[in-house]
């Protein structure tokens, strides 16, 4: 017999991992093109609030997801405009995207704090109390399966399609890519918007299923953990998923520690995922000895020298 608590832990792990993974996967795609977007936290927040508002007003869950994803993508295009078209500093632009995104979503969501959803993103099967691992796996939220599909297809697109190869070429060496006739700016612009769309999906999952309500700053650093996950995963979709599971496990484990008999202050317990994130980053950097697998041109604006 499997412990019912263990089932609950597994369930919570998968949910937390899904949220982190989708945002991380989007950032992975953006970074592959050589654009660093530190605005993940802000983009998740924008997707979360716009999706929630749409769900409250229309009670149409499909439309809510669509609006959340699109608005985050449009929001990310500010970063694309500033860094790809206007070649400004990616670190500054991304940071401000986070600050702007959090402020904007607080402004938008002011009248939606504490409102209850009529329709939520539901699980696909009718099992409400899973009793074994298989039942846990088949009773997940639809976004979980979407994340699995996105993982497989992203990996496939990056490795096996022309678009993916172009994306990687641009991120590795934009100058050579340009002289080969690849459209550097267009590729980077698309990759940034796709990253935004993924963050938006992660955001709507947050407000329409994971929590599910809206309050200020509810992303609580998940966007930054997603950024760490990309480094953790060495810019590879499957390894990033593994990292997301690990971090999801930690997020799920922490509130349960007391039920397992650990006497810890809940306030201290809350900070452990952040401490562990730093530890993992350190161990990983030592282990890989500097060969992190980062795209070579990341953070470097591309400019074609004209004579």
């Amino acid at each position: 017999m499997i412990d019912i608590q263990l089932i609950g832990l597994l369930n919570a792990t998968l949910q937390a991992a899904t949220l982190l993974f989708i945002a991380a996967l989007g950032e992975l795609i953006t970074e592959k093109s050589g654009i660093l977007n530190l605005g993940v936290e802000g983009m998740i927040s924008v997707g979360a609030v716009t999706g929630f508002m749409t769900a409250i007003n229309t009670e149409n869950i499909f439309l809510a997801v669509l609006v959340g994803v699109l608005s985050s993508s449009i929001f990310a295009s500010i970063h694309a405009l500033v860094t790809v078209v206007l070649k400004q500093d990616q670190t500054v632009s991304g940071l401000i995207l986070t600050i702007l995104g959090l402020a904007l979503s607080s402004l938008l969501g002011k009248n939606y704090v504490g409102r209850k959803l009529v329709t939520k993103l539901e699980s696909v099967s009718s099992i409400t109390e899973p009793s074994n691992i298989i039942e846990v796996l088949i009773s997940q939220n639809i976004i979980f399966y979407l994340a699995v599909v996105l993982m497989i297809s992203t990996s496939f697109v990056l490795k096996r399609t022309m678009f993916g190869r172009r994306l990687e070429a641009v991120g590795e060496d934009s100058k050579s890519s340009d002289s080969m006739g690849l459209k550097v700016a267009k590729t980077q612009f698309i990759a940034t918007c796709v990253g935004g769309a993924f963050a938006g999906l992660s955001g709507v999952y947050l407000t329409l299923s994971y929590v599910p309500y809206w309050t200020d700053n509810m992303t609580s650093g998940r966007g930054w953990i997603a950024l760490a996950l990309v480094i953790f995963g060495g810019w590879k979709p499957y390894r990033t998923a593994l990292g997301a599971l690990l971090f999801g496990f930690l997020e799920a484990l922490v509130p349960r520690l007391q039920t397992y008999g650990f006497e810890l202050s809940p306030y201290i317990v809350k900070i452990t995922p952040y401490v562990i994130t730093i530890l993992v980053l350190v161990i990983l950097t030592i282990y890989k000895g500097g060969k992190t697998g980062a795209p070579r041109n990341i953070g470097v604006p591309f400019f074609r020298e004209n004579r």
């Binding site: 760490a228 401490v275 980053l281 030592i286 500097g290």
Partner: peptide
């Protein structure tokens, strides 16, 4: 010492 990205570590210390 290890070359860990300072943007992420300094940000995470805020939460800690």
């Amino acid at each position: 010492v290890f070359g860990v990205n300072e943007i992420i570590t300094t940000l995470l210390t805020n939460y800690i």
